[in-house]
Design a protein around this nucleic acid. Sequence first.
DNA 1: AATATGTTTCGTTATTTTACGAAATATAGA
DNA 2: TCTATATTTCGTAAAATAACGAAACATATT
Lengths: 119, 119
Amino acid sequence: MKDFLSAVKALSDENRMRIFCMLKQRPLCVCEIYAVLDIALSTLSQHLKLMKSAGLIDDEKDGRWVIYSLNRKNGLVTRMMDFLDRELGADERILRDRKKVSGLSRDICCSALQKGKKR
Amino acid sequence: MKDFLSAVKALSDENRMRIFCMLKQRPLCVCEIYAVLDIALSTLSQHLKLMKSAGLIDDEKDGRWVIYSLNRKNGLVTRMMDFLDRELGADERILRDRKKVSGLSRDICCSALQKGKKR
DNA sequence: AATATGTTTCGTTATTTTACGAAATATAGA
DNA sequence: TCTATATTTCGTAAAATAACGAAACATATT
C-alpha cells in the first residue's frame, strides 16, 4: 500500500505527470525536460528526486549530463504507463509536450540553460 | 488532463484510497465509513466532499443518513477501480477494511457515533 | 414543540508541498 | 588549472492540504 500510494502521489502533480509521459518517448537529460516545462531548474530537480524515490524513474550519468528514464524494472511503472496512455493519449498538453520533445536534442537545448532561452 | 489529474489527486491520500476501496464493496453511510477509519467526522466529511467534487463518488440522502457510493456513471471510476483492484487486491490494510465493512450494518455502527465507540 | 441522531460547515492550527534564487558540486574542455 | 556547462542542495517563502473541535443544519422520533 505504501509503495503504491507514493507512486500515485508522485503522479498527482501536473508537472510530474508531464515528465512521466515525456519519459515514455525516450530517456531525457534534465535540460531537455527543463526546455519543455515552465519551472525553475531547482524545482525540476526536486520533482525528479521525488519521482525517483517513488520508484517511477531512474537516472544515469553520461558525462556532464544526467539522463532520466522510466524505471521499467518496476512493474507498476509499466502498468501505470499503460493506464496513463489510455487516459491521456489524446490530451492536448501531453501531445504538445510530445511534439516538443520530438524536435529536441541535447545539443540544441543545452548551453542555453542559464540564459532563460527555451528552444 | 485537469479532470484526470484531480481524480488522481483524490486518490493520493491513504484515507481516501481506503474509502474508495470500501465503496467498491457496497454503498456506505458516513457513520459506517467513520467506524472503519481513524479520523474525526469533520475530517471524513471533507474527504468525501473532495472525492465527490473530483467525480469519484456520489451521495444520496436516505432519511437522516447520507449514503455514498462509487460514481459509476464516470467511466474513469470503473477503470481506476479495476486498476486498484489489481494493485491492492492483496493489501492487508485493504483486506482488513473489507472484513470490517462486511461485519457492519448501519444499525450497529450508528448511534454510537458521538461516544467514540467503534464497533 | 422538544429531543436525539447523522452529517456538514466553520474557524483554526499544524504539516506538507511547491516554488524560487543562490550557492555548492561535478564533469568536460581550453 | 581555470572556465564553462549541467545538475543538485540549501534556505526560505507562499500556498495547499489534512486535521480537529465546536457550532450549525437536517431529519426522524417522542
